[in-house]
Nucleic acid binder design. Structure first.
Lengths: 122, 122, 122, 122
DNA sequence: GTGGTCTAGACCACG
DNA sequence: GTGGTCTAGACCACT
């Protein structure tokens, strides 16, 4: 299993696939030139329809993240900085939301330490 | 304008309304017994359809957050702490994601300071 | 308190009032010539709006059940057999429904005995 | 035609749909894992709007009676016994009402026999 | 084809 | 004025 898809999320499955692929590139798990799994394989793996994975890959090709090699599959081309920047912006908004709801800086710090200094975290 | 709705988000508008109302209760902007705006007023205010607001309020009634009084409006009943707990859990997952993508603890700390110590934010 | 109104029922409040008045006539609690409570009094008693009671009485006048006496109030005129017949028809439909759902005749008989031979009921 | 909807009833159509679906599960006509008709098919069949059926199914999902599978349909998940218990309680109240209105036990017994021993009924 | 969401507009019951 | 329901029709995501 490459990653997890939340079928109950409101985020479309194909978008979730795009996000996870991009995250794997940013994190270095997928490098330029690597093959991503075939549409059929990933579809089987995630338990979703082939068309859905195909659509995700198509979007990634449009964004220049993947490149389609006829008869072979898709390879990683690269990814700009914009994805990570968007993620950080979303994070900031998330944080502001929590602040508004009365969550203290200390509570946030505690979670931060948990994530960064506890080996049991992802 | 009570709050902002992102019409481009994949999160359904009615869900966004639910979330904002709950956040306002958690933050104390709405207290038990307060009237929330009428479905028609809020719909006009947010630029969405009346039915969409009605659906959001109906869901909040199902969750015990609001109570409907025919011919009068909706009043705030209360909110469990499960909402905030879920928010904090989502935040932690968000954080782990960023860590996996190679974001350093320092970068996160920087954003944290921005949100909590810069009046121009939020 | 004359009777109970279910504010959460889908049956309109004014219809519920009509039904209860009719039931009281059928049962003999209200006889021909009796005064029903004033609109204001009943409204206060039931905790509903004056208009709602007024509407119920208006309907009952239309059906010939009540008669309006200008400046005095409303008196009971009488009630046909149709009300009880409708009630019995509804009861039969209710019973057929339970039968379809697999409720045995014995279970029904048990409830029947409870209602007709237990002084704590009704 | 799956079942009948009373368009003149004060009970909302979506509630009537919920009730009939639940009754069919209790009676065994629908079993766990069965597909219920698609929202569009049932809407066409009953002569109501698609949204109305969708709302009914949504409520049943909230109650844990149905489960939705995107692109496939809704399947029956199960039903607690609370539904039947509520039905029996309503029946008892109905019966007490009739007793108060002067209906004799004998008359009730007669209807009971009609329903349970006459093939022309139900 | 399936479900999920949204809009625009209608009518009813209640205060 | 308030909420509650329903319709007709649209677009999207998914199989």
């Amino acid at each position: 299993m490459w990653f997890h898809i939340d079928m109950n999320s409101h985020v479309p499955v194909y978008k979730q696939i795009c996000e996870r692929i991009k995250a794997m590139i940013i994190s270095g798990k997928l490098k330029e030139g690597d093959y991503v799994p075939s549409v059929r394989k990933l579809a089987l793996d995630l338990g979703v329809n082939v068309n859905t994975v195909a659509r995700a890959y198509r979007e990634l090709v449009n964004e220049g993240v993947l490149q389609s090699i006829r008869g072979e599959g898709y390879i990683v081309k690269g990814i700009g900085r914009s994805f990570l920047e968007r993620k950080l912006k979303d994070f900031k908004k998330n944080l502001q939301d929590l602040k508004t709801m009365g969550v203290s800086e200390g509570e946030i710090e505690k979670i931060l330490k948990e994530v960064f200094h506890d080996d049991t975290n992802g």
